[in-house]
């Protein structure tokens, strides 16, 4: 039951992009087309899951024993940046198809603050290892959901008559704000 609650919370109630406002850069930048938005969403899910596991281990078994818990931000940045590079190399070697599908989004994730945000949130919330991994995966799925929804709306917006000064990013931000308000309704849900 705990896990189901955790997944619901991560995907809907405290959605990374729409209620925590993390990863807004790719959220706005890679949401012009549904295809690329889905690619980005799943690449983030993938990296976030692995990063949650790895940062948990680094924090619990390296930083805490050395009494360096306050270094977690900078240490996690190191871990995530290297991890993304490593994952990219692995995928390039062993699955060219997946590499092509994820394409440029994989290296872009290095700069996605949502990954770091979730890694730190796992620590502050005091999650266990399994919960951290589930939370990472669900948060990634939440991001994928949000970015695909936004991309779907933006594809429709292309055919509509937007005022010139709102074309492109401004109207995307307005859409994102309205989506965020819609998602805030989940915060009143009682499980």
């Amino acid at each position: 039951m705990d896990y189901i609650l955790l997944i619901f919370t991560a995907v809907l109630v405290s959605n990374v992009a729409l209620s925590q406002f993390l990863g807004i850069c790719p959220f706005i930048g890679v949401s012009k087309k549904l295809d690329s938005a889905l690619g980005m969403g799943f690449a983030v899910t993938f990296v976030m899951t692995i990063a949650s596991a790895l940062t948990f281990v680094v924090y619990q078994y390296m930083l805490l024993p050395l009494d360096l818990g306050y270094l977690r931000t900078i240490a996690f940045i190191l871990v995530i940046a290297s991890l993304v590079q490593l994952v990219e190399m692995f995928i390039k070697k062993f699955s060219p198809t997946l590499y092509k599908a994820l394409g440029v989004y994989l290296p872009l994730i290095t700069t996605n603050c949502a990954v770091l945000g979730i890694a730190i949130a796992n620590i502050t919330a005091g999650h266990t290892f399994a919960m951290a991994v589930v939370n990472g995966c669900a948060s990634g799925l939440g991001f994928a959901l949000a970015i695909s929804l936004l991309a779907g709306i933006r594809e429709k917006m292309k055919a509509s008559d937007t005022p010139d000064c709102f074309k492109g990013f401004p109207i995307a931000l307005v859409i994102a704000a309205i989506m965020s308000m819609a998602f805030s309704a989940f915060q009143n849900m009682v499980f």
Partner: peptide
């Protein structure tokens, strides 16, 4: 000490 640890990592 933290510097050394981070640089090592």
């Amino acid at each position: 000490f933290p510097t050394v640890v981070l640089v090592t990592i």
